[in-house]
């Protein structure tokens, strides 16, 4: 009696699979790197649900190594990767979104992604209350301890630098100017791992069908 393996095989393509050459042409990755990312994608997308799509639980499991409770930041990143807003990250979405985190990706793309990440209610502005909420979420998930007054001071000081027209919200233009003056604010938007995936993660590299 035969049996069907649930492990991701080389020949089986995940739903939403896209041609690596097309993805390479649209991102900061080479074809070989996109193929290496596909190996990573398969590993993540079969970690719990075995359907070749990355669900939120699988994304969080990969980020934290354990099943932990809800995380505002992980939820936000997942939702931004899920470009079609259908509750899963498809392969093309995975590659296109990760490309923004490539060290060589344009700063403007990183800034735009971070702006969407921090615009919690999708109003097109980062409001003071949203920034306060983000700082409190950071404190909740870390060992850092700041008093309420210290949080207020940090948020107020940041707004005094970023909100140049003083309307208590940061618009995309103000954000662009702010990150130009404060590039460290985008530090988490670059992943050195992505600089050369095929060298850093040889186990993800299959025999490529193409030469870059």
């Amino acid at each position: 009696m035969g049996c069907v393996s649930s492990s991701p095989g080389r020949s089986r393509r995940a739903p939403g699979y896209e041609d690596p050459a097309v993805l390479a042409s649209q991102t900061s990755f080479t074809v070989n790197e996109v193929e290496a990312l596909y190996e990573l994608y398969k590993k993540l997308s079969y970690s719990i649900f075995k359907d070749g799509l990355i669900h939120k639980e699988e994304f969080q499991l990969a980020l934290f190594r354990t099943s932990k409770g809800p995380s505002l930041f992980a939820d936000r990143v997942f939702d931004l990767f899920d470009l079609k807003r259908n509750g899963v990250i498809e392969f093309g979405e995975f590659v296109r979104s990760l490309s923004i985190f490539h060290p060589k990706a344009p700063e403007s793309d990183k800034a735009a992604f971070a702006f969407k990440l921090y615009d919690l209610r999708g109003t097109g502005y980062i409001e003071k209350e949203e920034l306060r909420e983000l700082v409190v979420a950071l404190l909740d998930e870390s060992d850092l301890c700041l008093s309420d007054s210290a949080v207020e001071e940090i948020v107020d000081n940041t707004f005094s630098q970023a909100d140049s027209n003083g309307d208590d919200r940061i618009d995309p233009k103000e954000w662009e100017e702010f990150v130009k003056k404060n590039p460290a604010s985008l530090r988490n938007m670059s992943l050195p791992y992505l600089q050369d995936i095929t060298t850093a993660f040889p186990s993800f590299v299959m025999h490529s069908e193409v030469d870059d």
Binding site: L40, L44, A62, L63, F64, R65, S71, L72, F73, A74, V77, L98, F101, A114, Y118, L131, L134, V135, A137, L138, E141, S142, L144, C145, L146, S147, A150, E153, I154, V155, N157, T158, Q161, F178, N182, A184, S185, L186, R187, N188, L191, Y193, A200, F201, S203
Partner: peptide, 29 residues
């Protein structure tokens, strides 16, 4: 509470310290 360097950061630098914003976990085997 909180060290001096934390107080000197702007809010976005502070938020950037969130471990759940560090996507390198996706690549760890």
């Amino acid at each position: 509470p909180g060290d001096k360097s934390t107080h000197q950061m702007n809010a976005f630098q502070l938020i950037g310290m969130a471990s759940s914003l560090d996507l390198s976990g996706l690549f760890e085997e």
